[in-house]
Structure formats: C-alpha cells, structure tokens
Amino acid sequence: MPLIDAQDISKVYRLGDIEVRALSGVSLKIGKGEFVAVMGPSGSGKSTFMNILGCLDKPTGGRYLLEDIDVGSLDRDALAGIRNKKIGFVFQGFNLLPRTSALENIELPMLYDGNSARERRQRALEALHSVGLEGRGEHYPSQLSGGQQQRVAIARALVNNAPIILADEPTGNLDSKTSADIMELFVKLNSGSDITIILVTHETDIAAYSKRAVKFLDGSIVSDECKAGS
C-alpha cells in the first residue's frame, strides 16, 4: 500500500468565464520513506498539486488516497485533523507566528491535538534538539537567522510525528550555505526515521538531495526518475 496514492487528479479553477486547468489527470504513488523532489517551472501545476497532497485544497476530479483514506470525501475539520496528524508543512517564508517563542511555535500542532502542557513542552524540546537548536527555545523568530527559523519550522513539522513532510521551496529564502545545511537535515531525517519528504523546488542542486524527481509541465507529470545511490 503506497502512503500517497493520487489517481487521475485534475484541478480546474474558474475565473469568471475563463476555465483554468491547473492539473489534468495527474497520477502519482509515493511510498513510505521516500524523498521526492517535485520540480517544474512556475505555472506548471506543482504548487496546486502540493496543496492537494497537503489537504489544503481538494481536487475537482480524480481520487486522492492518503494512507487509504479518501481525502476527497472529508469535510473541512476532518482535513484539518489530517493536516495536524499526518502532514508537517515547511514553507519558503518559514511561516512562524511572530511574537511567539520558538518553543511555543513548535508546540502549536500539539495544541490543536489537545495534548497536555507538560507533554507539549517535552516533545517540543525533543524536536528542537533534533534540528540542532538546543537553547534557542525562548527566542522569538525575529531574534533568529533565516536558517534557524527554518529549523524551528522543521521542528514544528516533526513534533506531531507526522509521516509526511511537505516542504515548499524550503531553501528559497536562504543563502546557499544555509540551504545546504537545511537539505542535510532533511536527508538525515529521511534516512534516520523513515519520514517521507516531498520537496518542491525549481533548483536542480536542491533537488539533487532527493532520491526521486518528479517533473511537472503544464499541469501534467512529464518525467518521474528514481536516482539510485544518492
């Protein structure tokens, strides 16, 4: 059973009278523990596809099974529950809450899962440790560098033990040195704990860290290559 099973997914936006076909019949299976780079120029539909994979959006056609659950049949709150427990998001712009300490940012997903304050704090500290930011828990995002902020965001994605991390251009706002550090962290997480990582990028050197590259163009997958030995 694949972790992610997207079957003939299509997405049509309607802007007034004009129909915009963002995805036309995309099928993709991703297994547990894979590290997939999703590539393609802007407007190729990769972001739309990622939003659907992340349960932020619903397809207009086709079926999306996540751990055998048909996501298309779920309501708003059920989707929120799936995002909370199954998916960790890492964004290009970090998307941490301002004026909120690193630890509290990391605790946020557990807050919506109804964990006790003590358990939240303990797991947040562990997640902070696993991204190499011990001792920075009380810092506010504005007091952290870009790379450190992205590490906090990764810790937040990890903390609910989600099997999937969706990273949307995670290095887009970082310099190349920090980008490499962040990518090393992803590789470590992927090989160390079987977390499935799906990475959206348009940079080939970033995509090179992955084991599989899926290329989008004009709403369809044009290539799907596994790289042995990377």
Partner: peptide, 16 residues
C-alpha cells in the same frame, strides 16, 4: 490573516 492561515495549515479546526 497569515497567522490564521498558519494555524489552519497546522491543524486548527473551524471552532478552534
């Protein structure tokens, strides 16, 4: 709005 978006992405439900 952005904060609300982050909270929703992370799993906040309608009533949260």
């Amino acid at each position: 709005t952005r904060e609300i978006g982050i909270r929703m992405a992370i799993g906040a439900r309608t009533w949260d």
